[in-house]
C-alpha cells in the first residue's frame, strides 16, 4: 500500500478571477471596406509575410492598411503605438509568434 503525504502545490497561484474575454472579430462580407493594422515585430520575414497577407486579403476586401512597429520582438509594443493602431484599424494582426 502506497503511503502519502501532503504538499503545497508548487504551481498554485491565485487566479485573478478575471473572466476570459473573446476578442471581437468584425463580420466582413466579401468586398467590404476594411482598415487593417499590421504590427510588425521586426523579426526576419515578418514584413514580407505581412505584405503577402495584405495582398491576399485584397482579393476579399477593399483593404486600407498601415503597418506599425513594435520596436523589438521581445517587448510589448509601446502603448502609444497600440493607441495609434487602434484608432486606425477595424481589425489588426497584432502579433507574430515564431
Amino acid at each position: 500500500m502506497t503511503t502519502t503525504i501532503e504538499i503545497l502545490n508548487p504551481t498554485f497561484a491565485r487566479v485573478s478571477g478575471q473572466e476570459l474575454r473573446k476578442a471581437p472579430f468584425p463580420r466582413l462580407e466579401e468586398g467590404t471596406k476594411v482598415r487593417i493594422g499590421f504590427l510588425n515585430n521586426q523579426k526576419p520575414n515578418t514584413q514580407e509575410l505581412l505584405a503577402l497577407v495584405e495582398s491576399g486579403l485584397r482579393e476579399h476586401y477593399q483593404v486600407e492598411s498601415r503597418t506599425f512597429f513594435k520596436g523589438d520582438a521581445a517587448h510589448p509594443a509601446p502603448p502609444e503605438v497600440i493607441e495609434e493602431l487602434s484608432r486606425f484599424a477595424d481589425v489588426a494582426v497584432l502579433a507574430t509568434a515564431d
Binding site: 502519502t4 487566479v15 478575471q18 473572466e19 476570459l20
Partner: peptide, 18 residues
C-alpha cells in the same frame, strides 16, 4: 464571452507519494 477564467485553478494542497 469565452467563458471561464483566464487561468486554470489548481488545488493548493496535494496528496503525493511519501
Amino acid at each position: 464571452r469565452a467563458g471561464g477564467t483566464a487561468h486554470a485553478v489548481g488545488e493548493p494542497v496535494l496528496s503525493v507519494p511519501s
